[in-house]
């Protein structure tokens, strides 16, 4: 088991946003975490990356307890996050954004990794010297993914990669997610777009107001009446 979360609680001030989450991700798996706006999905991912405080519970990664580890330590261990809303470094160039993705591996020559990212996202090569803030939403999403991949993650945390994108671009982004999975990257995908996420996931979790209410294989969840009614509008 690559990631094993037990009884995780977190919140903002006195308001608890996560009421004891149990979730695990096996090596090579693509796991989807779906839920409505405000369910706590982003809070959960931020807690996994160490940028959101944890009040109870444990996070184990590759057998090591990282509940209290610093964010930079987690990146070194192999956890990278593509944050909600892309969060690219707007004033810096596309290439600098990618280089900063490899910040924990500075000292190594990033040329080969940059070429790999430009192969994966050809549009970034064309725009490599443009300020990241001038890119379109879809291009920024690709840049944010490229930046996270520059760290050579074993576990990629994706927060709402489809948010605000046209259906065509959503398809493209999900194709890339699937391709990364085939290349052996373990992925935890957080989505409001439950249908698209569960369709490509090995397993899924449904998060409702801070509690996991359902879990199972992606296809089973897609067929589940409760999920269909609540998230798929069927």
């Amino acid at each position: 088991m690559l990631l094993d979360v037990k009884g995780l609680k977190s919140g903002y001030g006195r308001i608890e946003a996560l009421h004891g989450i149990d979730l695990s991700v096996n090596k090579g798996e693509l796991v989807a975490l779906v839920g409505a706006n405000g369910a706590g999905k982003t809070t959960f991912l931020r807690a996994l990356s160490g940028v959101q405080g944890v009040t109870a519970g444990t996070i184990r990664y590759a057998g090591e307890d990282i509940t209290r580890a610093s964010p930079q330590k987690r990146v070194t261990l192999g956890i990278s996050q593509v944050p909600e809303g892309r969060q690219v470094f707007g004033p810096l160039t596309v290439e600098d954004n990618l280089r900063l993705g490899a910040f924990k591996r500075r000292g190594e020559d990033p040329a080969a990794d940059l070429e790999r990212m430009y192969g994966l996202f050809p549009i970034l090569k064309k725009k490599r010297l443009d300020a990241a803030g001038t890119l379109s939403g879809g291009q920024q999403q690709m840049l944010a993914m490229g930046r996270a991949l520059m760290a050579h993650p074993d576990l990629l945390l994706l927060d709402e990669p489809s948010m605000g994108l046209s259906p065509l671009l959503v398809g493209e982004i999900f194709n890339i997610v699937q391709m990364l999975k085939e290349q052996g990257v373990t992925i935890l995908l957080v989505e409001q777009n439950a249908y698209a996420a569960l369709a490509i996931a090995d397993r899924g979790y449904v998060l409702e107001t801070g509690t996991i209410t359902l879990t199972g294989a992606g296809t089973d969840l897609l067929a589940n009446d409760q999920v269909r009614a609540a998230y798929l509008g069927m």
Binding site: S70, S80, Q81, Q87, R99, F103, A148
Partner: peptide
Amino acid sequence: TLLGKAILATSHNPMAARLVGIN
């Protein structure tokens, strides 16, 4: 230098900077 750019990145978006492993 990457360190100089890391300072600019932190200034622009501290959360994203932490997520790429900048202390």
